[in-house]
């Protein structure tokens, strides 16, 4: 018996886009959607919640504690619990991952707003900024680096965690792991790992780029 190679390129070529739901490209597409929706939902919820936690400090302690507890739960546990509510659908993966994203993003928003130096805030007040405009034009932009650092962590974790969803049949590229395991066949597993890591690196790079575009002043200061 010849040794099974780690990667069979012909298998990849045949299965990249075979038109079926198990084509690698279809799984990749699925994976991207299931990884990004939670981060998007998480950000949409975390911004107002984070603002509320800054405005009413007493809210932060219980929120942080709750998020800490959520974050310590294994993803498979949350998937299993939501399985009884949402069944074998994408939501069973997307909803728990949204909670994980929130657990990272709420502290990021709160810390980001706390990182705004007091003199900056006071200057804005002195220049006649009203609270709402001050928040949008001064405080949030200054908070961008901290919020984006959280967003990077949330995005990369989300991309890798989706694959655990394969255990309940909704794992995007993670389904390749199950396939490879059942057939004792390395290629799909290697393809899955490589694509997930590449996807994470790509998303992370895009967010770093976004930070450069959103905070032009930090570059100006560095070159000065």
């Amino acid at each position: 018996m010849t040794e099974e190679p780690l990667v069979r390129w012909d298998w990849i070529a045949r299965n990249w886009a075979n038109g079926g739901p198990t084509a690698i490209s279809a799984l990749l597409e699925n994976h991207v959607v299931m990884a990004f929706l939670p981060v998007l939902f998480g950000l949409v919820v975390a911004l107002p919640l984070g603002l509320a936690c800054v405005r009413w400090r007493w809210l932060y302690q219980p929120t942080a504690a709750l998020m800490n507890v959520t974050y310590s739960l294994p993803s498979l546990v949350l998937f299993s619990i939501f399985l009884s509510v949402t069944g074998l659908t994408r939501s069973t993966v997307v909803i728990p991952l949204t909670f994980f994203a929130l657990a990272v993003l709420i502290p990021a928003v709160v810390d980001g707003l706390a990182s705004v130096p007091d003199p900056v805030r006071q200057s804005a007040v002195a220049m006649g900024f009203r609270p709402a405009r001050r928040l949008l034009r001064v405080e949030l932009p200054v908070a961008v680096p901290v919020v984006l650092a959280g967003l990077r962590v949330a995005t990369v974790s989300s991309i890798s965690l989706v694959s655990v969803g394969a255990l309940i049949g909704q794992g995007g590229l993670g389904n390749l792991f199950i396939d490879g395991w059942q057939r004792q066949f390395y290629t799909p597993i290697v393809v899955g790992i490589v694509l997930i890591v590449l996807l994470a690196v790509l998303a992370d790079g895009l967010l770093v780029l976004a930070q450069r575009l959103l905070t032009p002043w930090s570059r100006a200061r560095r070159t000065a």
Partner: peptide, 19 residues
């Protein structure tokens, strides 16, 4: 730090155990 966050747990488990 970055590699650990991106590596899919399930994939790593399956690959190492098969190998």
């Amino acid at each position: 730090a970055n590699a650990a966050r991106a590596l899919p747990t399930l994939g790593l488990l399956v690959l190492v155990v098969l190998l």
